[in-house]
Design a protein around this nucleic acid. Structure first.
Lengths: 208, 208
DNA sequence: GTGTAACGGAGCTGTTCGCTCCGGAATATC
DNA sequence: GATATTCCGGAGCGAACAGCTCCGTTACAC
């Protein structure tokens, strides 16, 4: 599979590009300039646009990958013997790579059929993880899988300004607090109705 | 105090402007266009720039007001008989008007002497509130006042895209979870060191 | 040496920003 | 009424910056 010479370099650059794009878009938001990604990757604009014909195409690919990573994280969680530990692993992993920061930007691009497919899969696996925790009685009963997705999204939300190492540490502390609040039973009943799936997916435009 | 005619209108417009600016900046971020604020207020650009000579000046005034509101919220919390209820009131109030969303934008403007003064005051009052909760044993002991400020900031962080009524409801649910996680004792020790005041204020440039 | 594939980044074109400027409407004064 | 004053709206200015293209250069293959 591995090529030689320039082709190998091209393959490496592909990865660097994806990593840089993830970094930039999740920390600076979806309207970060394309040149920032090329810079972060240490590449020129030409190299970027040879692989992705438009900014939107890059974003689509990035969202897809993020969702696939989320699926993998949920499966890892399911592989854990303890239902609570599995759920925590899932949430921690997703927040760590800020998968939630990409969810709202999906509303600004066209959502491809493949993206819908993986989104459905991600939803299903996460549901299994949450249901298992509910049945084991380790997750407060008034919280839904969608609540947890939105919690991860809120915690993935980047601070404006330059990236900050210290901020990541802080986020882990705050997330630990929220996770404690997730354990059964809640001291207080959650206010309002649980969020609906229609509303959640509605942000991405209409279904395929 | 109340004037008549055009002067009264000007005073009303001043308020509308401030409200609009708060709305726009806390939901769209600090780089929202000035025209968006004028629109939201139902005013022309001229009216805006007659009161604030630059965008920065408007932001400074806005941050100051937000901090004053935070101080008031903390004092309201202190006025509550129950230490836990007081703390919750403070956190809820601040998150509700997204005071935390303005904290990071302060890093992009010059911080005036008065802003430093009020910031110090806010810190002090919040400290009293947190200390009281600690002493009453209702707040987990490993959480600091700064943790709580940063928690509020994280929850104030706006979602990209259009403002969404449903999102506010969701945020209340998520905040309820986090508040439950704040009660003593925590199921798990918080990871890492508590954030330092130097780092926190460092985002605003150097002290006065 | 020659051909090819991938490279970097200056620059094109259109958009958007912060801000100014001015004609007109509403109010105050005579 | 007539005039002076105050405040209004929003078109438009110059600069900055966006996404994207294009092309001279470089590194490898044969």
């Amino acid at each position: 599979m591995s090529r030689r010479g320039r082709q190998a370099e091209a393959a490496r650059n592909d990865l660097r590009l994806l990593r840089a794009a993830h970094e930039v878009f999740t920390t600076q938001g979806f309207d970060a300039p394309v040149s920032a990604i090329a810079n972060q990757a240490g590449l020129g604009m030409g190299s970027l646009y040879r692989r992705y014909r438009t900014k939107e195409e890059l974003l689509q690919r990035l969202c897809l990958i993020a969702m696939e990573r989320a699926v993998a994280a949920a499966e890892d969680g399911l592989a854990q013997a303890d239902p609570w530990d599995g759920l925590v692993l899932y949430v921690r992993t997703c927040v760590e790579f800020r998968s939630g920061a990409l969810a709202p930007i999906a509303g600004t691009i066209e959502v491809t059929g493949e993206m819908w497919r993986v989104a459905r899969l991600a939803e299903e696996v996460a549901d299994r993880l949450v249901t298992r925790a509910h049945e084991a009685g380790v997750l407060r009963s008034d919280v839904t899988a969608l609540d947890i997705s939105l919690l991860m999204e809120q915690f993935s939300r980047p601070a404006p300004g330059p990236l900050d190492e210290e901020h990541c540490k802080v986020r882990e502390r705050l997330l630990a607090i929220a996770l404690d609040g997730l354990r059964a039973p809640g001291a207080t009943e959650l206010p309002g109705d649980p969020p609906s799936a229609e509303w959640y997916e509605g942000r991405w435009g209409s279904a395929p």
